[in-house]
Amino acid sequence: MRRALGFVIFATICGCAGNLCLRQGMITVGSLPGAAPAELFAFFAAAAINPWIWLGIAFEIAYSLLWMAVLSWSEISWAVPMNALEYALAAAAAYALLGEPVGLLRLAGIALICAGVALLSGSWTQAGTATADPLTHPI
């Protein structure tokens, strides 16, 4: 439990750092102007040679490996709401590091999402035991 919690926190920080790097990279690459093949090619070519993007990919790979380790130890209903933690952490980090204006509306939205995900994840365990019941669902 404590090992899994440590890994989850570490994974969340890696995932958050990865997305911060990706966003910083895309700020330097610039907005995708249109969907013409030439525009798409130039856009992804610029992204592929951007060091921020590669740093972000490295963080995301670390995140995936840590997350796989977590899922091998814990139930999904416990692990998934930890994912929602990343939304809150990323909002704080994006405000502090990227200077994003996180208004009250967005904060309220993130808070509601985190509360909802916590409720939903609890309901998965109940559904899991319900389907495992041989009387209601003979398999």
Partner: peptide, 15 residues
């Protein structure tokens, strides 16, 4: 996801 991040703020896109 990269296209989304080129248009949107991270604190909007991630949640």
């Amino acid at each position: 996801w990269l296209i989304v991040l080129s248009w949107a703020e991270l604190s909007w896109a991630l949640p």
